[in-house]
Design a protein around this nucleic acid. Structure first.
Lengths: 204, 204
DNA sequence: GCAAAAATGGACCAGCAAGTCCAGTCCGGG
DNA sequence: CCCGGACTGGACTTGCTGGTCCATTTTTGC
């Protein structure tokens, strides 16, 4: 048959994706050409199309997946064990730190815009990332609830969705303004909301 | 001197901006060419460059401003008088309705990505929009506070920033997934947070 | 009514970037 | 050693798109 990826081949493919991710973060999707990626990864045109036969879109999609995988990884181990107030605040700090370091680059967002809504692949990547992220937040809230730290009537799913939205929006605003105030406000207020419910004994 | 815009001239310019905004919403910035805009607005190349001498970027910036102006307008009159719980819920419904109607098109977000962080103009437009939006939310919260509907110790600015972030994030998620769950959750939880503080008499 | 300026039409240009092609090299198995 | 297929290099093609230019028409001020 045709394709049986060699060790070397797999390494090259990985190198392309990682290098492309770098360039894309720096210059932005709209201003990155295949030649830029070629230069950064020390590859030739034919290699690019050898590993991504469908062309640029396929490569961008692979980079999107690569970036998506990193998003949750970068929040570990905090995101994985949100079972005390302490751990929630550590997670908060990790998120703020990560995105402040990232600055005004939003690889995933711009990737999504470029690849387009048309291709279902892009949607799927983002949707799956959101699902997992929210799930982990919800699990953390359930852990708090199990320990009696928040109201037993807390609507975990809605609250997790709202917190996730806050983080997303905070990051979005930071992309536009370069200011992390909103991200911090969303995180702090979200956690504060959880704490407030601890003081209330019953529903409503 | 040179430029003294005629009535006809102003009309044409406006027609270009509005038509361009339509096309951009439909096809997305990355996939829209000047010829698309030309076709939609029934204009010629020279007209485009007559009214936007700096070229495509200048036109995109004008469209961005046009879209930004509509964002807050579309939330009126509700956003302007958030002085009762009733009015907050009406605002909530207006926001949800507006963005659900808009669907998966985010003219401003994609415009920003395309024009790029380089040009300060784009940043300024978004930053100013955010500032005004947040200011109106904060004013609404102060109105509630003045009526004793929320805690007198409510940190209005932080809470307004968090709520704005939630809305932004909700919209972002909806762009990606086509689902307005997060937007609704952010709005509901944000308002709920305000209501909760009403029950608490003092700080902390 | 008449210059001057604004507005318009559309052919044309230049550059760039995605994608193609083929020749040549490397590598693993037999 | 050697053969087939994976891998690599880079020149070339092609289509598109932003931008230019100038001729023509319409409008405005006087």
């Amino acid at each position: 048959m045709s394709h049986a990826p060699t060790t070397k081949g797999r390494a090259t493919r990985a190198r392309i994706i990682e290098g492309a991710a770098e360039v894309l973060r720096e210059r932005g999707v709209a201003f990155t050409t295949l030649d830029d990626i070629r230069a950064r990864t020390a590859t030739s045109k034919s290699q690019l199309f050898h590993y991504f036969p469908e062309g640029k879109d396929e490569l961008l999609l692979a980079v999107a997946q690569f970036e998506a995988d990193r998003v949750l990884e970068d929040q570990q181990p905090y995101l994985g064990c949100l079972d005390s107030w302490e751990s929630w605040y550590q997670w908060r700090d990790a998120v703020v730190e990560r995105y402040e370091r990232q600055g005004d680059q939003c690889p995933l967002g711009s990737l999504f815009l470029q690849v387009g809504r048309s291709r279902p692949g892009a949607r799927a990547i983002v949707a799956e990332l959101m699902r997992q992220w929210q799930e982990q937040l919800a699990r953390g809230m359930r852990a708090l609830r199990a320990r009696g730290l928040v109201s037993p009537t807390l609507d975990v799913d809605t609250t997790a969705a709202a917190l996730l939205a806050g983080v997303q929006g905070g990051v979005s605003v930071m992309m536009s303004t370069g200011d992390s105030t909103h991200l911090k406000a969303a995180l702090d207020t979200g956690i504060e909301y959880l704490r407030v419910t601890a003081d209330r004994t019953g529903p409503r």
